[in-house]
Nucleic acid binder design. Structure first.
Lengths: 341, 341
DNA sequence: CTGAAAGCGCTTACAG
DNA sequence: CTGAAAGCGCTTACAG
């Protein structure tokens, strides 16, 4: 086939038509589902396609259909955090592969700077992609509104906060996960259960705190503000929050931390304070990141179903592109028991 | 502008021409560099573009130019390893951003399975991208030959081993980095310096070992096979290699490990064996991954210039697409001194 | 410097 | 079921 050096002029629909002895319209019909085509014609075209090694020219197709048959994966600032998050890789890989199964390429777009954001929005608003998989942690991110205003199908990863526009999203069950963890801590005898939350302008911050609070009530435990500290999803933030908690409530016997990374910081602080985990204080994380396994003690945590999240994002985006209404998908998390609680 | 719901029919070159009072050919000339256009005409067209919000239809352009103005980032199996590698993120992000600066979208392609490989190759060979940024750790990867045979411009990350085809690549100076580390170990008084290599069918495996060996000679130290163990870039592989080394050469006083991840395994083994780092045994890694900072003791290691690697990959690929010959770029690493050596 | 025209490779009503 | 034809939005020699 492709023996000679350099690129050969690729076969066109015209070559296939000549080879098969039919018109170009018939070839096109075979390419697009084979409706209104006789079995004989279809067979001839299929054979001709094989002989000529024909592959459709997507640019020509897109020019006339007005669709690009491609999808953007758009990461808005601050992307650094995501690029350090191993879960992000799982998400990106999952989306790429789910799209590839439908022969849809994924365009990776990073809107870290203002300039990049302008560029990417211009590209998307020009109709160069059929839809957008959006990863944005930014509450009230203007990108969401811009995309919505442009009429571009969008599916977000996680609930977009502070949005008026109704856009579809796929998220893990943050609240349910938090409930599972607090129930577990309670069931193993803990009664002074503290929490380190995520930033309260993120879904994970708000929802996991809500789940914590609800389960406390369910277990007949009082809600005590001294047991609640706000973190920023960083390891250092976890350290500081744990110091604050230890200071305000030295008698605490468990901490539910809204992310594994922060939980590592909590472990550091507890270690320095001479508190043993889990003997004195149980620690539960969230994410089931690789660090959860590597830490000492290994972390009891909640696994987010990133593989299912990516699959659902792609599925619902394609449905949206096909004209369906935006939907919300909430996927369950799974409690992973290790040594810390 | 884009107020109403849904997508508006976007402006075409025709609209711009009418608005500016010139022909479509003139608009096109302005779009493509403004050569052979009078200042007055150019000004009129620029104004019309601004008024109409015109954005070029890339499909139409590509159809006629035969170029896609897009580039693939192709990851061949086993991709899992790369997706766990934080350096991979830096590389991917760097490539995306360097391309974005030229308004060239990056198509992310993962060829993990045979099916995915077929799909991606078909897409690329059909001429749907102008070039490929290739990340392949596989010695003798057939993808390289296929791409070369198809005449698609390619730039690889790291030296492609076992290839007859001459393709361009960008790599860190593995050998020089290894030399720096061994010199450092020697300069700090170590005389029984062992090494844990990477797999010997990878450039990092081969080159870092070569650098180790050369520097031993340079320092007047004998090359002793008992001091060389082969790893597989995994933490467990590092553990096992260290046990082997300790067994064969209990008097060793330093280990140069060809990756940080393996170095963590080495630290585990040394810890269990009761050897103190760095007092009894110095340990040097390679990569400067986040784990290098998090480990105890923190790891002395070699930083790979991933930001420069990505920039050079994009630069040389674009040059190659423009018709230049393939080139090789070797970028220096940097010794990062921390606590382990 | 500029316009008119051809043509890139496809899809899709429109007749038959 | 099938062919002929129009047209998607652009670029690029070709005349002027």
């Amino acid at each position: 086939m492709s023996t000679a050096a350099g690129r050969r002029r690729p076969a066109t629909i015209h070559d296939v038509a000549r080879e098969a002895g039919v018109s170009r319209g018939t070839v096109s019909r075979v390419l697009n589902g084979g409706h209104y085509v006789s079995p004989a014609a279809k067979a001839a075209v299929d054979a001709a396609i094989r002989r000529t090694g024909y592959v459709v020219n997507r640019h020509a197709r897109s020019l006339i259909t007005g669709k690009s048959d491609s999808v953007a994966f758009l990461l808005t600032e601050p992307q650094e955090r995501f690029f350090e998050d191993p879960n992000f890789n799982v998400l990106l890989r999952g989306c790429t592969q789910a799209l590839a199964a439908q022969d849809i390429p994924l365009l990776l777009m990073i809107a870290g700077t203002e300039d990049e954001r302008r560029r990417n929005l211009r590209y998307i608003e020009a109709g160069h992609v059929d839809g957008v998989l959006l990863v944005s942690s930014h509450s009230g991110d203007p990108v969401v509104d811009r995309l919505h205003a442009a009429g571009v199908p969008v599916v977000a990863c996680g609930k977009p906060l502070g949005q008026t526009a109704r856009i579809g999203y796929v998220a893990a069950d943050d609240r349910g996960g938090a409930q599972d963890m607090v129930r577990h801590l309670h069931a193993t005898g803990r009664r002074r259960i503290a929490t380190v939350t995520g930033p309260l302008d993120t879904p994970g911050g708000v929802e996991r705190l809500a789940g914590y609070r609800e389960t406390l009530a369910e277990c007949g435990l009082p809600y005590d503000e001294d047991l609640v500290a706000t973190g920023d999803y960083s390891r250092r933030g976890g350290e500081a929050a744990a110091r604050l908690l230890l200071d305000r409530a030295p008698d605490l016997d468990a901490v539910f931390v809204a992310s594994d990374l922060m939980a590592l910081g909590v472990l550091d602080t507890l270690d320095r304070a001479g508190r043993r985990v889990p003997e004195d204080i149980a620690v539960g994380g969230f994410d089931d990141s690789p660090a959860a396994l590597a830490s000492r003690p290994s972390l009891t945590t909640l696994r987010q179903p990133w593989d299912r999240i990516s699959a659902e994002m792609v599925r619902t985006l394609l449905a949206r592109i096909a004209g369906e209404d935006p939907v919300t998908v909430i996927l369950p998390t799974e409690l992973v028991r290790r040594d810390s609680a």
